[in-house]
Simulated scan of single mutants.
Amino acid sequence: MTRPTLFPAKTIAITGGARGIGYQTAKELIGRGHRVAIGDIDEARAKEAADELGISSVARLDVTDPDSFRAFLDMVETQLGPIDVLINNAGIMPTGHVHEEEDTVTRRQVEINVLGVIFGTKLALQRMLPRRAGHIINTASLAGELSVPGLATYCGTKFAVIGFTEAARQEYRKSGVCLSTVRPTFTNTELVAGTSGAKGLRNAEPQEIARATADLIEQPRPFVRVTRVAGGMVAAMKFVPGRLATALGSALGTDSVFLDDVDMGARQAYLERIRNS
């Protein structure tokens, strides 16, 4: 259940806010009393989501286009005031063998998952630095710390998000602007449609990621991993010898869960949407 916050209300902009983690994060933050705006490439669904959330600050947003991103942030500040928090949440996750991945799909992942985060971060910094206040939260993934077969390009983009954010965090550590990453395990949204998850590890629910993100706003720190169990495992795996890590991955089924075990029929609608967006 969403709880009212004891912290001052903030103006918060969320990319990819029409569905999944972005939508649930908006819902959580609104419930805590914050002023929230959402942007999404799917304009029709974004407007539906805004109606459901009871907010009016909504716009079509192409995170790969700096002009579109700039216009979105302008809209937020005109309607709600200076942006206190930007959540770069938009992202896509195709699955499959690297050699079979279409070049357009590869490019789209890099454009949305990496360039979208970099563009948004730069634009937010330009607004926040003169005020010496603000918080930029970039949604990464535990797949940005621990590689998963079948998600090579996706993992590469999330490794990039973590590296970029950490470098920028250190660069601006004395500026008054915070930078953080949220690192979810695989989460029950469209992104994992047709997959069964790792053996013995449950997927997260988007509401869990939303709560973790909202808590991070109220008590900033460099990053948060979700779930606690999956995050602890990923952290521990960094100290495990390579052969043992590979064997453990096989035991958990992670070497096939995004390859041979995928129900492509169940993923078809999602894949068509991200190809046509």
Rank of each mutant, 00 (worst) to 15 (best):
102 E>R: 01
182 V>F: 02
99 H>Y: 15
273 R>C: 11
10 K>M: 03
88 N>T: 01
80 L>Y: 08
120 G>S: 07
207 Q>L: 11
73 L>F: 00
90 A>V: 06
155 C>L: 00
154 Y>A: 12
50 A>K: 01
187 T>W: 06
265 G>S: 15
146 L>E: 12
34 H>K: 04
89 N>V: 01
78 T>I: 10
77 E>S: 10
186 F>C: 10
8 P>R: 00
234 V>I: 05
276 N>A: 15
94 P>W: 04
263 D>I: 14
97 H>F: 15
178 C>S: 05
40 D>F: 00
95 T>K: 15
13 A>D: 03
151 L>A: 12
30 I>Y: 04
211 R>T: 13
129 L>A: 10
39 G>F: 01
54 G>S: 10
151 L>H: 03
245 A>K: 10
148 V>K: 06
174 K>D: 05
179 L>W: 04
250 S>C: 13
40 D>W: 04
167 A>L: 06
31 G>A: 05
273 R>V: 12
251 A>K: 14
95 T>N: 11
189 T>K: 14
143 A>D: 15
172 Y>Q: 03
229 V>W: 07
50 A>M: 13
210 A>G: 01
189 T>D: 09
87 I>E: 00
14 I>Y: 06
98 V>A: 04
111 E>M: 09
264 M>Y: 03
125 L>N: 05
130 P>S: 07
12 I>M: 01
221 R>Y: 07
210 A>V: 03
29 L>W: 10
18 A>K: 01
124 A>N: 08
225 R>S: 02
208 E>F: 07
185 T>K: 15
67 D>C: 07
102 E>C: 05
216 L>Y: 09
99 H>T: 14
40 D>K: 00
205 E>N: 08
262 V>S: 09
131 R>W: 07
200 G>I: 02
135 H>V: 09
237 M>G: 08
3 R>W: 10
112 I>V: 11
173 R>L: 00
176 G>D: 06
109 Q>V: 03
132 R>F: 09
29 L>M: 12
30 I>V: 07
30 I>H: 04
202 R>Y: 01
50 A>P: 14
261 D>H: 07
130 P>C: 09
252 L>P: 03
52 E>S: 07
15 T>A: 09
47 K>W: 13
127 R>D: 04
136 I>H: 02
225 R>G: 01
85 V>H: 05
